[in-house]
């Protein structure tokens, strides 16, 4: 069913060759070093990777919310519905945030202001972007709360964050993100701080929200089981680059890049008992001093001479599957 869906779907976001660096006293950290991907309408793209691989910086770059002045987008295009976000003025970009793109952060405890009611915080983007006033605001707030399946929304909107549990708070954060019906929602590890059963609720909820609103989601995480449950397609990031992009089933059942397959093999399985886990030797490289050629070659079990010397180009294997590896032909 998804095959024909892909062909006539609108592309909501197209990112081309994005480079983002942090300039510090120690030098330039190439946090995102030439990343390209796209997200279709109503699709969830997972960005998976280990800490420091650049997945969060990618998300922040899309919103142009990098910590100033250290972080800077050096090159690339971020095209949302035909507009290149990198060409917008600061003021124009502010209008996009919350309205066209919004973001959910990891920690529900710190992403809400403790001094304002839930209703007030959800109303904020509505007042900013849609110039709504009075009862219309409250209606919209209640519908946002209802969208996120928050029980008794009329009462909840008068609550302060500390009166809600962690799971409820994260739903409120979701409601803020969805209040203006954005085209694209970036979720950065939104369930990492939650317990297993609450996480399951949240994921089920977000699939439901997506069906109702057709929003596109970029889901940033390190957790493969969440990726499997949530995402249509997956981009695997390593040391600032995407190494493989493919449909979720392909990533799990037929991974092509040695890093992807090694990662999947190294995660313990719930459905069988392993005696030993496959383990990848070494550690991810420093972003200050990346290896030449393919950045995974020092840890790669299948490394060849060419891997050390030249960076591998993109190889397309059928629709929606691309790999950056010399081993693929």
């Amino acid at each position: 069913m998804s095959e024909n869906k892909n062909n006539d779907k609108n592309i909501v976001l197209q990112v081309e060759d994005l480079h983002t660096s942090f300039f510090t006293r120690k030098g330039e950290y190439k946090a995102v070093d030439g990343v390209s991907f796209h997200v279709d309408e109503g699709e969830t793209l997972g960005i998976v990777g280990e800490s420091g691989c650049g997945k969060t910086v990618t998300g922040l770059s899309l919103l142009r919310l990098l910590p100033e002045p250290a972080g800077r987008i050096k090159a690339g295009k971020i095209i949302l519905d035909g507009t290149n976000l990198l060409e917008l003025s600061k003021k124009e970009m502010r209008k996009m945030r919350g309205k066209e793109i919004s973001m959910i952060l990891q920690d529900p405890m710190t992403s809400l202001n403790p001094l304002y009611t839930v209703g007030n915080q959800i109303a904020e983007p509505l007042r900013q972007h849609q110039q709504l006033v009075g009862d219309r605001v409250e209606e919209e707030v209640i519908s946002a709360l209802r969208l996120l399946n928050i029980p008794a929304p009329e009462q909840r909107l008068r609550d302060y964050p500390h009166q809600l549990s962690g799971g409820m708070r994260q739903r409120v954060v979701g409601a803020i993100g969805m209040s203006c019906n954005p085209r694209l929602l970036i979720a950065d590890e939104p369930t990492t701080a939650l317990d297993a059963t609450i996480q399951a609720q949240y994921i089920a909820l977000f699939k439901d929200v997506q069906k109702k609103t057709n929003v596109s989601i970029i889901y940033i995480t390190h957790d493969f089981s969440v990726v499997y449950q949530m995402c249509h397609r997956v981009a695997v990031m390593y040391a600032g680059k995407i190494l493989e992009t493919a449909r979720t089933e392909v990533i799990f059942n037929n991974p092509t890049h040695p890093y992807t397959s090694a990662l999947i093999k190294s995660v313990p399985r719930l459905d069988r008992k392993d005696d030993r886990l496959y383990s990848i030797k070494g550690h991810p490289p420093s972003l200050l001093n990346l290896p030449s050629g393919c950045r995974f070659y020092p840890r790669c079990p299948e490394a060849k001479n060419i891997c050390r010397d030249k960076e591998p180009p993109e190889t397309k294997i059928g629709d929606n599957h691309s790999v950056y590896c010399w081993g693929v032909n």
């Binding site: 962690g166 317990d195 297993a196 059963t197 399951a200 609720q201 699939k207 949530m230 995402c231 979720t248």
Partner: peptide
Amino acid sequence: RALISASSISGPDEKDESIVLSGEM
């Protein structure tokens, strides 16, 4: 059973058969 269901694998488009508990502890 709910815990096992929450961490097992079911894709985004599949018919959702996982057990999702309501409420919180």
